[in-house]
Design a protein around this nucleic acid. Structure first.
Lengths: 258, 258
DNA sequence: TCGAAAACGATCAAAATCAATCGAAAACGA
DNA sequence: TCGTTTTCGATTGATTTTGATCGTTTTCGA
């Protein structure tokens, strides 16, 4: 036995395990060598961390809990043209002022925005995106979830129940995503339930800011969301055709291309 | 004994401890060496500082309340008696029938229950727990989130907005957690907002089933949730005193001990 | 399908840490 | 200066954490 003096505190060690696991997978044996403690201790730590939902144990080690979701269809979207999406999100971030209340929609571009907010304690964030809520679950602004039925594909809350909460709040700015947008049909998406929620959000926002990369331009999907008169600003990337931007500006919205 | 002349004043020393802890973590032994006082003094200082909410003590030292470490330590208490909690959850699972709609409350015991449901496509699950929703985010039953303000500590949605959704649904069985329960005061928890939600859920459930291990027995917390007449069944572990179970049955609820 | 190797969980003992107590020294007020 | 209060250090017994061992389970290749 002969236990060594504890070199690091247990919570510190667990936090290290957590970050190591986040990198991908972490085998028990590797963790033992890195942290210089017995496998029993590693196992106990993993047990605690799993209990807290921080990691998921597997035979031989542990994997990140977040990885499960990121494997799904969802993550395909986050990798595609993620450069543009990140730049769009950064531009959107600059539009947020102090002490504002904002809405964050589901989708990958808006998720980038949500990630940037975890150091802002002055904001109030309303969202129907489970993923966005997760990003802000540990720290950051005040978070209000809309509630409603969980739509698995997009990990958002949709349906009539959503309106129950949305009817009782107003936000300064709503940052919305969309599956497609074009001059004639306005904003469209795949699911009517989601379209309904987006529309509802627009009604309860002082400003509607659409975050959509240029790949969405001239795309029309099944469910209609709204016309351009509801949209105050479109933030997109520089691959958006200038002619499109010019025509759009005539319809009302400002257009920012980063 | 033979006490040295006090090198620095107590408040000054505590402030130093505080800044040292703010760096991340500080071990008692290290503090003793740097401040040149006995461990007893260090402990006393840490005790005071924790009372003031300046630091959070852990075995071997203290961590900053601002760091990410803090939060991982926070629910250490929930990891206790996880065996019992798992057994309780299994017992609860057996109470669920086909095609039912159920509510799942926040808390670790109910989280175990949520994990067991990911193969059930026949159910409808209403929950105010972000963690429970996550467990069922990929596959499993239909999930409906209550919405509301996110309470970070418990990762649940609480507050008046919650009632907007809850008012529109009914569930067959509500599986509730609690921080404490006793014969005279009924169910209690720490946060009044959460107590309010629990109470509201009970109103919209045909059956209320309380999942609580025996460590919660005879504990009374700040916020009152409800009396026993709202509770149809208590599922606990076998360490619950038989006399307690007997007295409780007289008040109405069935009692199951696994 | 079987068997070996790896990994796991449970248990126990050692070491470190902790909480409680007591007595002494310093600080304080008169 | 005297008596009181506060602060501090040492001791002791309890608690927590950790590591080692052993029997069991899981995994993987033959």
């Amino acid at each position: 036995m002969i236990r060594e003096a504890c070199p690091v505190l247990a919570p510190q060690r667990r936090e290290r395990i957590r970050t190591l696991v986040r990198e991908g997978v972490a085998r028990v044996e590797d963790l033992r060598k890195t942290l210089k403690v017995s496998v029993a201790t590693i196992r106990r730590d993993l047990e605690v961390l799993e209990e807290q939902g921080k990691v998921r144990r597997v035979h031989g080690g542990a994997v990140s809990t977040e990885s499960r979701l990121e494997e799904s269809v969802f993550d395909d979207k986050t990798t595609q043209s993620s450069k543009e999406k990140l730049r769009i999100a950064e531009e959107a971030y600059r539009m947020i002022e102090r002490e504002e209340s904002i809405f964050i929609d589901g989708g990958s571009t808006t998720l980038f925005l949500a990630r940037m907010l975890c150091d802002r304690n002055d904001l109030t964030v309303v969202t129907n995106s489970l993923r966005a809520a997760l990003e802000l679950a540990e720290k950051g602004p005040r978070v209000i979830l809309t509630g409603g039925e969980l739509r698995r594909i997009s990990q958002t809350m949709v349906g009539p129940l959503t309106s129950a909460v949305l009817g009782q709040v107003r936000v300064d700015k709503a940052f919305m995503g969309t599956m497609g947008f074009c001059l004639t049909n306005g904003l469209t998406t795949t699911d009517p339930n989601e379209a309904y929620v987006k529309n509802l959000v627009a009604e309860h926002a002082n400003q509607v800011i659409l975050l959509a990369d240029s790949s969405k331009a001239e795309k029309v999907c099944f469910a209609r969301v709204s016309d351009w008169d509801k949209v105050d600003c479109l933030v997109s990337d520089d691959k958006l055709p200038p002619s499109f931007a010019k025509s759009l500006r005539k319809l009302g919205p400002k257009v920012r291309m980063t």
